[in-house]
């Protein structure tokens, strides 16, 4: 076939939500995952870092930049976290949080109150070593990316073990430190097979369908993909983590487009700039896209504020928005799917 595949999907930048909040409060600090609830609230998991543990927690915002507070925080107690990796929300609005250090899944109710937690460290069935991605399958069961065991575990929402699939390796259906996971509306499961530089697709029951991607920085190639999202039409969005970009594919893996990000000032960021007149004045002559003498994507993004810097997670919002969360810039960019 030599017919050119029609590019059916593009991403158009529309907005930025975020602010660097090392001590908690309005904004995020090294966010690593987010989830959209059916009422439109957006929950952002800030992993923060050793020097600023107060920035650890789950923040609640919405598409219009309203701030609805935060909950959880650094610690080992009930409802606290150490190394949070992922969040997912079930059909009854309960929020599930994975913690790869404490090896547990914590559940919060729809009012953000702690409900319970479960999890056993290990490599046997019903055990995990480093839960990272979380998603619910078509039946409402919880899929846990058990990344250091290189497999996907399935549990009931109450933590009862059901089954698992995958093993360590690079063959079909095998994983190398997988990270993000999502379930498409057709029930298929997509996994960001992080260190194999590919996305794998499985049937609901864990049967391998296909894998796409190879190491590299060309179209359709990946460098440590961390997250994947699928819209209702089956288009696939991949956070190409170490290439500092998001790639879009159709359901047959035909390459659609790449976006690098073009963030502007969020209202929270604008408040900050307005409160600091010297920075406001200096920013008026600021060129966001300076001429660079580096080409490694990480270094380019470090020097270019609008670009994604460590795009860690992607999620759809409604039927025509894609949100891209950036760990190193404490924000998410909002794109219109066109």
């Amino acid at each position: 076939m030599t017919t050119e595949i029609r590019k059916q999907r593009q991403l158009k930048y529309i907005d930025t939500n975020g602010f660097g909040a090392a001590q908690g409060g309005r904004g995020y600090h090294f966010p690593v995952d987010f989830a959209v609830r059916k009422d439109g609230l957006i929950f952002v998991l800030s992993r923060s870092g050793q020097g600023s543990l107060a920035g650890t927690g789950i923040s609640v915002t919405d598409i219009d930049h309203n701030w609805h507070g935060e909950f959880s925080g650094y610690g080992t107690g009930d409802g606290e976290m150490q190394w949070g990796t992922a969040i997912a929300i079930d059909s009854s609005d309960r929020l599930f949080l994975a913690d790869e250090k404490m090896q547990r899944i914590t559940i919060f109710d729809s009012e953000n109150n702690y409900v319970s937690h479960w999890g056993t460290a290990g490599s046997g069935p019903n055990e995990f070593d480093g839960p990272s991605g979380l998603a619910f399958d078509a039946n409402g069961n919880l899929l846990v990316v058990d990344h250091k065991n290189h497999r996907i575990q399935r549990y009931t929402v109450d933590g009862e073990y059901i089954d698992s699939f995958g093993s360590e390796g690079s063959a079909k259906g095998q994983f190398n430190y997988p990270w993000g996971i999502t379930t498409a509306s057709d029930g298929r499961i997509y996994v960001a097979d992080w260190r194999n530089d590919r996305i794998q697709r499985f049937e609901e029951d864990g049967v391998f369908i296909d894998a796409h991607g190879e190491s590299g920085d060309g179209d359709g190639q990946f460098n440590r993909p961390s997250s994947v999202a699928v819209d209702d039409d089956g288009f696939i969005y991949v956070a190409d983590w170490q290439n500092q970009r998001v790639q879009v594919f159709d359901k047959d893996w035909n390459f659609q487009t790449i976006v690098l990000g073009e963030a502007g000032l969020s209202p929270w960021a604008a408040d900050y700039i307005n409160a600091n007149k010297d920075e406001k004045i200096a920013r008026e002559v600021f060129n966001p896209y300076p001429k660079l003498d580096v080409d490694e994507p990480y270094e380019v993004s470090a020097r270019t504020e609008p670009y994604f810097w460590v795009p860690v997670a992607v999620t759809t919002y409604g039927d025509d928005r894609l949100l891209v969360l950036e760990t190193a810039r404490h924000r998410f960019q909002i794109f219109e799917i066109v």
């Binding site: 960021a269 700039i273 010297d278 002559v285 020097r303």
Partner: peptide, 20 residues
Amino acid sequence: YMSTKMRNNTLRPYGYIAWQ
């Protein structure tokens, strides 16, 4: 802008921008 951010010792709004 870079020297002002340095002087104010601030990561805000979106973290530091590496210098070129």
